[in-house]
Design a protein around this nucleic acid. Sequence first.
DNA 1: CGACGATAAGTTGCTTAACTACCTATTGCG
DNA 2: CGCAATAGGTAGTTAAGCAACTTATCGTCG
Lengths: 124, 124
Amino acid sequence: MNGGESGSRPSNADAQALKGHLDVLLLAVLEDGPRHGYAVKEALREGSDGRFDLPTGTVYPALYRLEREGLITGTWSRVDGRRRRTYQLTPAGHLRLRTDRGHWREFAATISTLLEGKPWPATG
Amino acid sequence: MNGGESGSRPSNADAQALKGHLDVLLLAVLEDGPRHGYAVKEALREGSDGRFDLPTGTVYPALYRLEREGLITGTWSRVDGRRRRTYQLTPAGHLRLRTDRGHWREFAATISTLLEGKPWPATG
DNA sequence: CGACGATAAGTTGCTTAACTACCTATTGCG
DNA sequence: CGCAATAGGTAGTTAAGCAACTTATCGTCG
């Protein structure tokens, strides 16, 4: 598949483990206040101590998807000649974030319990 | 797609949230002792209090994948006329389970921290 | 006897979504 | 000018869980 195992591996090893959990993270970043896409990406990287260093090909389409779903809204502006699209949560986005937080907690608790190595219920 | 929105929703709502975390769950089920596919599916359902009621189209291909990767081995048998394929962890499977447990813990801790609503590092 | 449900093990094709690899554009540094 | 950082994007690939279906055995209900 890939050429070199040795050397720098810039992308996050978690990779597809994120599937289904990216949206809630993006919403959580935006809960603190409006941010443009690149700032969202950076906040996620710094807030995760470098573990979630997502490529732009992941972040921008995800933000676009969230906007299309009405969970965030974006507005264009121009700062220092660079165009920016600043996103903020909609009321629906706030609601979604709240329920998704609950879902994550339940999901994580279930998996953690299952991994704890307790004796499994015998079947038959 | 399906007939009724109201009422019963048999499939798990988590859906693709499981992506990337199914393997470690299957390995964890098999850590307690050998089990055949259907028993793995049932143990997962009961152990998760019904939350992970995975369809066979998810479980069997996943077990096949794990076997191909050398993490589990399966042997055919016949009980009450019904054929069974009983799986058990290989040494490599035990190793993988150990590291994957660590990965899950780190992954879950990172997401939980990010969702905790702490002030995000300001960018610019 | 036939229908049906539980057990048991698959297979096929669909879909979602994150990823890789690209591209455009501006500012500032050397 | 070349290059890095900032900023925003797109096209195509791939992984993997899911829905729906198939085969088969056994027990039970009518």
